[in-house]
């Protein structure tokens, strides 16, 4: 597997994938700095919950497109260079697919880890430590990003025009964003982009008189996390099966 990972990471050379993730993390960092900069940490008790909500919200806006672009970059090098036949003479079809997924998992893991580190820094600044909260934030964001990655990879592996998966992700981003503001509709539960909202275990009380917004913690939606994990597994199996069949037909 290490050889396959080495080869996959070499293929991504000059594709600016890592720069894309770095830029995204930088935007998240700026957003959080802006969001928390004018708050009085001593007076406002729900800052940590606010930071959690903010991180999920910014992920809803930025990450789906980043993930789609990443999946596109992973797939189009093979399609443009007509390389599947070449690779299939050196490795099993399954291992080509596994290599793509493994690189995806590692990049998403690191991307989430950096976000989590940033979240922990906010916690340190606010004198708040909760291993459980940090862990659940990591698991939630990682799971949603992974679900989006598997979804996008399925499209990108076969789209001759890689703009199609990108447009799908932009549409999905809007749907995911709307699902935050339309809690009465079940949209958030049926699209992977909506799961940033589903797995965000914070509530908001807005008092229109005082114009004060209170952020609070709710119980973690374990059921929906399990649903998402099942979706990831099914999507993985479906995409892998389709990949093997398509390679055979080439």
């Amino acid at each position: 597997m290490i050889r396959i990972l080495k080869a996959e990471s070499l293929k991504l050379k000059r594709r600016y994938v890592y720069l894309m993730f770095a830029m995204s993390l930088f935007v998240i960092f700026l957003w959080m700095c802006y969001s928390l900069s004018d708050l009085d940490f001593n007076k406002f008790s729900g800052i940590f919950a606010l930071a959690n909500t903010d991180l999920f919200l910014i992920n809803t806006i930025i990450s789906p497109v980043i993930i789609a672009a990443f999946a596109t970059r992973l797939a189009d090098i093979e399609l443009i260079g007509n390389t599947y036949k070449w690779l299939s003479c050196m490795q099993n079809t399954k291992s080509i697919f596994k290599g793509k997924v493994a690189v995806g998992v590692i990049c998403i893991f690191l991307y989430t880890l950096f976000q989590c580190a940033f979240y922990i820094l906010i916690g340190i600044k606010m004198d708040f430590y909760s291993a459980e909260k940090f862990t659940m934030f990591f698991i939630s964001v990682f799971a949603v990003l992974l679900a989006l990655f598997m979804f996008q990879l399925n499209f990108s592996l076969w789209s001759k025009n890689q703009l199609t998966p990108l447009f799908i992700s932009i549409g999905g981003t809007f749907a995911g964003l709307f699902s935050w503001f339309l809690p009465q509709y079940p949209l958030r539960f049926i699209i992977p982009w909506g799961y940033f909202c589903v797995l965000c275990n914070n509530g908001i009380n807005y008092d229109s008189v005082s114009r004060y917004t209170e952020y609070y913690w709710t119980g973690y939606p374990y059921f929906w996390l399990v649903v998402l994990i099942v979706y990831i597994v099914l999507q993985y199996m479906y995409t892998r099966g389709k990949f093997i069949t398509k390679i055979q037909e080439m």
Binding site: A7, K13, N82, K85, W86
Partner: peptide, 30 residues
């Protein structure tokens, strides 16, 4: 196939990589 080399239809290559790096991929996998 480890003892076999092949060139099927149009050439396969990674356009973002140099010729040397393209061959490096085969070396890693083989």
């Amino acid at each position: 196939l480890k003892q076999t080399g092949s060139l099927i239809e149009s050439p396969s290559y990674y356009g973002n990589l140099t010729g040397y790096e393209n061959l490096k991929i085969s070396c890693i996998l083989k």
